[in-house]
């Protein structure tokens, strides 16, 4: 679950990394866990995980669909509660097994059918199941670049970003657990591009590393990141084949790049 115990930077990515125990098998398992035979604690824990990872895409969709700040917050709470209770989820088409699409469809159903009633019930003292910093999300929503963007496109884009954020913070935690938080902080920005990026070679003098060792550490970090990313994507797919993962990533890339179009 972490960097190899030796703490050596020479570890080539893949060696010394255990498969991430912190991830459940797939998000589908997570959803199923919330049903039959699961204890209340297990269900809440599973849903909290889901809510934490995908709160913002859901919130932004609700918000962009024309709801105000407070309604959106309540609706998002309500939506995740609904999932927790598995109400109406069976009706959602699993859409070739993509959890992202599944969640969006469920959200649309929820908003269309239960919107008014839920809002009325929840407003002014509705039950807060999830401790989410809604102000932070609202700030983020207000900073969204284009107001022309449809709720759906916004949802897809934010889904992608949330996924990435989760992976990066998972990676940061792994490094932290291995006592290499500093190393990660110094090299983090070099994740996306090979080479020295904007640093003109040699990231942090504080690392006291040779240029080569540093490049290798970046390489290792990137390899680990790729593994985590693909694993995360796989978890949102019913069949986590290699081709499916690539297809999903390409879809998310398109969602990020093309602001006018959405599935």
């Amino acid at each position: 679950m972490a960097l190899s115990g030796e703490g050596s930077d020479d570890v080539v990515a893949g060696d010394g990394w255990e498969s991430p125990a912190s991830f459940p098998a797939t998000q589908w398992t997570l959803v199923n866990q919330m049903g039959d035979g699961a204890s209340e604690e297990q269900r809440v824990a599973a849903l909290e995980m889901l809510a934490k990872n995908y709160w913002y895409p859901v919130y932004a969709y609700v918000r962009r669909s024309g709801n105000d700040y407070h309604d959106s917050e309540d609706l998002t709470q309500g939506f995740f509660l609904k999932i927790l209770k598995r109400d109406g989820l069976g009706a959602a088409d699993r859409d070739k097994g993509r959890f992202r699409s599944y969640l969006l469809k469920a959200l649309k159903n929820y908003l269309a059918n239960e919107h008014r009633r839920e809002v009325a019930l929840k407003r002014g003292g509705g039950k807060r199941v999830f401790s989410i910093d809604s102000e932070e999300h609202e700030e983020r929503f207000l900073a969204e670049p284009s107001h022309q963007t449809t709720p759906e496109v916004l949802y897809q884009r934010n889904w992608a970003c949330s996924l990435l954020e989760n992976v990066v913070s998972e990676l940061a935690e792994e490094y932290g657990r291995a006592g290499k938080g500093e190393l990660f902080a110094a090299l983090r920005d070099r994740l996306p591009q090979p080479g020295g990026g904007g640093f003109g070679g040699g990231a942090a003098p504080a690392l006291a590393m040779s240029k080569g060792a540093e490049a290798k550490a970046v390489y290792n970090m990137r390899q680990r990141y790729r593994k985590l990313l693909r694993e995360s994507v796989r978890q949102t797919l019913h069949d986590g084949w290699k081709e499916d993962i690539d297809e999903e990533i390409r879809f998310l890339l398109a969602a990020l790049e093309d602001e006018s179009d959405g599935f």
């Binding site: 983020r140 900073a143 992608a160 970003c161 990435l164 954020e165 990066v168 913070s169 983090r188 920005d189 994740l191 996306p192 591009q193 990137r222 990141y225 790729r226 990313l229 693909r230 994507v233 290699k242 993962i245 690539d246 990533i249 390409r250 998310l252 890339l253 990020l256 790049e257």
Partner: peptide, 18 residues
Amino acid sequence: AGALGGICPQCLLRLGLS
């Protein structure tokens, strides 16, 4: 802008392609 702290999400995603 956002929690990615200035890392380009497209580039990050592209890294995941096999």
